[in-house]
Structure formats: structure tokens, C-alpha cells
Amino acid sequence: MRWIWIDTFVEFVSGQRAAAIKNVTLAEDYLHDHFPGYPVMPASLMIEGMAQTAGILVGEVRDFQENVILAKIRLAEFREYPVPGDQIRYETTIDSFDERAAVTSGRVLKNEQEIGRVDLIFSHVNNADRSLGLPDHNFVFTEQFRHLLATARLLSSNGDRKPDEE
């Protein structure tokens, strides 16, 4: 199953901050059910979009060697819903990072206007935690993320997209 809720990274500064965008389009099935005749981007999927943006930022710090699990939604508030044709931008920064977990805070923008905030905590789960019954391979950063990681790696160290690799 594909479960990718961001289209591409537009900023990526290792260990510090990232921004990703998602274009909302009526070609996506879920919008026809949420809601019939009144398509709006579900808040839960914007939380997922932020979790993917922030989760990749956090995972990259240790070169994706550890699984990074969304452990807690500290804050999620939205004042407005994007509709088909809008562009959502997820901006996130790492506030704390240690061997146990990472804390991120983030803004959600619609067509460059802030419409919400999402702050998250990620747990680091590695092979030492197999007693939890988790698989021994990396089950978070699978193939599905490779394309996104490639877009993140196209960005230069100061976070701007490299012009020669557009």
C-alpha cells in the first residue's frame, strides 16, 4: 500500500528543519467521501503529512538506521481546511533530539498562509527493542520513501534546491 502524503521536499537542512509540499487534487479518491459534494482535506491526513515531513527529518539525522515511530501528537490545531487546487506546505523544526526520542514543532500553510500547527514526538526504536515484538528490519523507511528521500537529497546543505539538479 502507498501511504505517502507529501509530494516533495522544498527545504531540507539536516538535523534542523524541513519543508514539504502537498498539492490537493480532486483526482484523489478520499476527497469524494470527505465529504460528498464538499471536498476538504481531512485534518488527520494533514497530521500524517506533517508526521512524514518531520519523521524523515528526524530519521535522516542517523542516516535512517533506526525506526522513527510517531509516539505522541503534542498539538494539532487547524483553523481552515484546504480544498482541491490548494497547495499545503508543512514546515517543521527539530526542538529536541536524543537517543530516546525527538520533538518537532511545525506549521501548516495553505497557499502560503498559516492555517494550523502540529507538534509531534517520535520514538527511536532499534533492534535492541525487539522484545516489543517489532520486526528486526527497518519497517518505517521502506522503499516507499526512497523517492521522497531522493527529493530531500537534491537539496543543498543550506536547504535550497540545487539549481543544476532541478
Binding site: K72, R74, D95, A101, I121, S123
Partner: peptide
């Protein structure tokens, strides 16, 4: 359990 970590941070 995760709240304890949140509280620490």
C-alpha cells in the same frame, strides 16, 4: 509511558 518522556522534555 510516552507522556513521561514528553514531561522530561
Amino acid at each position: 509511558s510516552i507522556d513521561f518522556l514528553d514531561i522530561v522534555f
